[in-house]
Computed example of a mutant assay.
Amino acid sequence: MAKNLKWRDLGTGGRILVALTAILQFGLLGAAWADLARRRPAEVNGPRWAWALAALVNFAGPIAYFARGRRR
């Protein structure tokens, strides 16, 4: 079984990787929510509240919204 690492157990490279991943995740979430807030309901495939909740699912939610949630 894998050992659970603590923040203090990570080296500098590991800490940077975790921080960059978190920044990317929250950036995608913020971009998806901002885009969703600016669009009219007719410009979104499906209910807006459902896409807002789906965007909370790690990287997959915001990427799915940008790929399938918006109408052209």
Score class of each variant (00 low, 15 high):
Trp33Asn: 09
Leu20Lys: 06
Ala64Arg: 06
Ala31Trp: 12
Asn45Gln: 08
Ala64Val: 05
Arg71Val: 03
Arg8Asn: 12
Gly14Asp: 08
Leu20Asp: 11
Pro41His: 03
Thr12Pro: 09
Gly30Trp: 14
Val44Ser: 06
Asp9Ile: 06
Gln25Gly: 14
Arg15Asn: 07
Asn4Ala: 13
Arg38Ala: 13
Arg39Gly: 00
Gln25Asp: 15
Ala37Glu: 12
Pro41Cys: 03
Leu28Asp: 10
Pro41Trp: 00
Leu56Ala: 04
Pro41Lys: 06
Ala50Ser: 07
Thr12Tyr: 14
Ala67Gly: 09
Arg48Asp: 06
Ala31Val: 06
Gln25Val: 14
Val57Pro: 02
Glu43Tyr: 10
Asp9Met: 02
Pro41Ala: 02
Arg48Gln: 10
Leu10Met: 14
Ala32Gly: 01
Pro41Glu: 00
Ala52Gln: 05
Phe59Ala: 01
Glu43Gln: 01
Gly27Val: 06
Val44Pro: 03
Ala67Tyr: 13
Ala67Phe: 10
Ala19Trp: 00
Ala19Val: 07
Leu24Ala: 12
Asp35Lys: 05
Leu5Tyr: 06
Ala60Arg: 09
Leu5Trp: 05
Phe66Lys: 03
Asn58Thr: 15
Ala22Glu: 11
Arg39Met: 05
Trp49Asp: 11
Phe26Trp: 15
Ala67Thr: 13
Arg68Asp: 10
Ala64Thr: 08
Val18Tyr: 11
Arg38Thr: 11
Arg70Glu: 04
Gln25Glu: 15
Ala52Asp: 02
Leu5Thr: 01
Gly14Val: 05
Gly69Trp: 00
Val18Gln: 11
